[in-house]
Design a protein around this nucleic acid. Structure first.
Lengths: 214, 214
DNA sequence: GAATGATGTAAATGCTTCTCACATCATGCA
DNA sequence: TGCATGATGTGAGAAGCATTTACATCATTC
């Protein structure tokens, strides 16, 4: 008896898997939310795909490169989600920005595998150039949204768009890390993470001199 | 040849170490910043303390309980640092609050071992009741500082102190996670993490209707 | 129809966590 | 004084993981 024919992987007909790379990523995405990015093992992913523990090394240099690959793919999906939420600034730039923030939280909650690989797996963003680029693309969306919001201010009173984007990103990321995930939140809260974020962003914009629907 | 007499641990005279528990914590605090909270191993800590790999289990149920112990100790020191920075609201509540935020970043930077155990090691806050309590104590300091700041607002316009504290905590934590640590920041920035945080908090307070030095 | 490169296997190494039976030592108690 | 006892450390070992190396299988191509 071997692990052959015992995996959950789809499409394992003969000696070769045929789609192992994808199957491993799929397995990892299912495994990471279960055991955390630390608990995830290369060997278990191979088992789920129905191949030997050595097979994954034909597709990824090592465990970290699989995680980096997932993180990169995650940033791509992340960028898509943020873009969709931003809707090119509709209905108005401030609402769009709030929606992007909520999409940030939603992504952390609904895509725990990707999110963990991106931010909690200890993978440096420079692991690969592609990963860095994917991360930059995602951030650029926040930055563009910030620019549209700032455009509503008179010329002389505009703060740097980069700073605004960094503030909202940090706030979103902090809330997602502390209260947003599927794990027990760090602290009991009287409001949802989404409401907390929206309130924070609104106060912040108020501080910049922007009014809702302004 | 055994690991006996080869450890770096202080005070290993005879068969018994004499202070193994402390030595293991010390070793872990030195090791975690090197290899990350994931890379840290129980066995290596034992080696540094000059004892066998089985010895640590006399003092900690398992690896996670050592990390939880460090996290708890970290929250205690964290609380001390935040308290000192807050200085009971001196010179004025807003400045005190900003200083607490900076102390948050400073802690992340100067105590990477503690910080990683507290927030990046995948240790749930409910790992032990003591850990949860230590975390709550630290947060209470932020909450008190928020209350002092809010007191500067007219009765009818005071937001919930808890919300304000959560906002500033999240922003601080987000900045610390993304840009604050010793690892490569997620993004190049035109300003320091401290300046970014201070600017964010000031804008936020402005949005609440508070003026600097008001 | 064989050479070739891509993909998967077996086996082995060295690491980890964690357990269990046993060794050593300080302390207290007779 | 001298022996029980509990706390602490040791040795050995089971089970699991990452990773490598030599070898097996298969599709493709010339």
């Amino acid at each position: 008896m071997s692990w052959r024919h015992h995996g959950h992987g789809r499409g394992r007909a003969g000696y070769h898997h045929g789609n192992l790379r994808e199957a491993l990523i799929e397995a990892a995405l299912a495994l990471i939310p279960e055991s955390g990015p630390l608990g995830f093992t290369f060997a278990e992913a191979a088992r789920q795909a129905g191949v030997s523990p050595a097979a994954p090394y034909r597709h990824f240099r090592d465990r970290d490169h699989l995680l980096a690959d997932i993180a990169q793919q995650g940033f791509d999906r992340f960028a898509e989600a943020l873009t969709a939420a931003g809707a090119d600034g509709a209905p108005d730039p401030m609402t769009a920005f709030c929606n992007i923030g909520k999409a940030y939280l939603a992504f952390a909650r609904t895509q725990p595998g990707y999110y963990a690989a991106m931010f909690e797996a200890g993978i440096a963003l420079d692991a690969t150039p592609e990963l860095r680029e994917a991360g930059d693309r995602a951030f650029a969306i926040l930055r563009d949204a910030a620019e549209r919001v700032i455009a509503g201010l008179p010329q002389g009173k505009r703060p740097p768009a980069l700073m605004v984007a960094l503030h909202v990103w940090s706030l979103s990321h902090g809330i997602a890390s502390l209260f947003g995930g599927r794990t027990t939140p760090v602290r009991a809260m009287p409001m949802s993470a989404e409401d907390l974020l929206e309130a924070g962003v609104l106060v912040y914009f108020q501080g910049l001199g922007l009014q809702k629907q302004g």
